[in-house]
Amino acid sequence: MGKTKMYMDTVVDIQVVTEQPQHLVEASIDRAFAAFRKVEDACSRFSQDSELMIACRRIAAPVPVSSYLFEPLRFALEIAEWTNGVFDPTVGKTMEECGFNRHYLSGEVIESFADASVTYRDIVMDEHNRTLYLKKPMVIDLGAVAKGFAIDLASRELQRFERFVVNAGGDLYAGGSDERRNVWKIGIQHPERAEQNIHIVEITNEAICTSGSYERKSSVTDGVHHIIHPRTKRSPNDWVSCTVIAPFAMMADAFSTAAFLLGEEGSKALIEQAELKGILISSQLQIMKIGEV
C-alpha cells in the first residue's frame, strides 16, 4: 500500500508491504505524513509564520520552541562544531541573496535582515528549558537536516510493519526488506542523466541521502547551487554528488551536505570518522566508495 503527498518542496512517497490490516496501515501512513507537516511548519525559512522564522525575529531573548525545531537545530549545531563551521545553519541570508527564497506553494518571496558576521556560535540552545537564544539577527537554514528529521519521525510511525520505505525526493529510509523479501536496492541518480542511475546500493533498516550540485541552481548568481560555503558564499564543486548511508535519515542528510562542503580533502575523513558509508562522485564522474557499499 502506498500514498504520495507534497511537503518541503518535494514529493514524499510512503510504501508499506505487510499482511497487517489495512486500517492500521492507513492510520500509520497518515501519522507519518503528519510528521512531515509538523516539521515543515516548524522549520521552514520560506514562511514568515513558521516557528523558525518567528524565532529568528526575536534577538537577545530566550524563545521557547517545540521539539520539531529544537532537535534538528541542535543536531545542525553539532555538525557545525564538528566541521569547524564549514557546515553552518546561519547561512540562510546568503541563501536568500542567491535566490533561494521563494515558497514552493505560495510563491511568496522572503527577504530578511541578518548581521553579516553571524555564525553558528551566535546561537545558544538551552536543553533544560528547550529555548533558543540568538545573539545577532540571522536567518537559520535547516535544509540539510529538517527533511531527514521528518523522514525519521515518519519511519518511526511505520516500525510495526515488516517492509516499508519513506522516500522524500530520493532521500529515504528503507525498513526491513522489499516485496520479495530481499534487501532494498536503491539507485543513485546519474548527475548528468536524470533518468539513469550511476550506482546501486543495498540497504536494510538504513537511510540514504544525497546532496548534488545538479539539483537546484541559483537564478541570481552564476556557478552557485543550493549548497553554499558560509565563508566564501560560493558553491564547492569538487563533487557533483555526495551520498551517505546512515542509521538515521537526519544523519545521512546532514553528512551528505557536510561532505559536499568539505570537498575532496575533508569529505572522506568526515564520513570515516562518523563510521558511516558514502558514495562520492567527482565532476569527472569518478566514483569514490567509502565503507562497505
Rank of each mutant, 00 (worst) to 15 (best):
Q159W: 02
V244P: 00
A259D: 03
S47P: 00
Y104E: 11
V109Q: 09
A154H: 02
I151D: 02
L132F: 05
A154K: 11
P21S: 07
D115G: 05
K3P: 02
V220N: 10
A34S: 10
S218A: 07
S44R: 06
I59S: 01
A207G: 08
Y173A: 13
E26C: 02
V183D: 12
A76I: 08
M1P: 09
A252D: 06
W239K: 03
V240D: 01
H128K: 15
D126A: 06
M125W: 05
F113T: 14
Q189V: 09
Y68K: 06
A258I: 01
L24N: 12
T83M: 07
A76R: 05
K268D: 09
H226L: 10
E202Y: 12
V17Y: 07
A168C: 12
H103V: 05
F255R: 03
V39C: 07
R74Y: 08
D88S: 05
F161T: 06
E292C: 09
A168S: 12
M125Y: 09
E26M: 14
R130M: 10
R234F: 01
I188Q: 11
R31I: 00
V118Q: 11
A76M: 04
C43R: 08
D13L: 10
L69M: 09
S218L: 10
E108Q: 15
V166P: 00
G187F: 02
P64C: 02
P236Y: 00
E195D: 14
E195N: 10
T94S: 11
E97D: 15
E265G: 02
G187C: 04
A146M: 05
R121C: 13
G223R: 13
T119W: 01
M138R: 07
S256G: 09
Q22Y: 02
V25Q: 07
G148A: 12
F113C: 09
R31P: 00
G263C: 05
V17F: 13
Y7R: 04
R31N: 08
A269K: 14
A246W: 03
E275C: 10
K135C: 07
K93W: 12
D222W: 01
K185M: 08
I29K: 04
L262I: 05
T210H: 08
A80S: 15
A168H: 03
S155Y: 04
E127Y: 01
V183N: 15
P230C: 08
I123C: 02
A27G: 06
M8Y: 01
P247C: 13
K38D: 14
V244N: 09
N237E: 14
F87M: 10
M95Q: 10
S28E: 00
W184I: 08
Y68H: 06
P137L: 14
F149H: 08
C56F: 01
M95S: 04
G212R: 00
S256L: 03
V224W: 01
P137Y: 04
K93Y: 04
I281N: 05
T243P: 00
S218W: 03
T10K: 13
R160K: 15
D152G: 07
P89F: 11
E162Q: 14
G212D: 04
Q20I: 09
N197V: 11
A258N: 09
R160W: 01
L158W: 07
M8R: 01
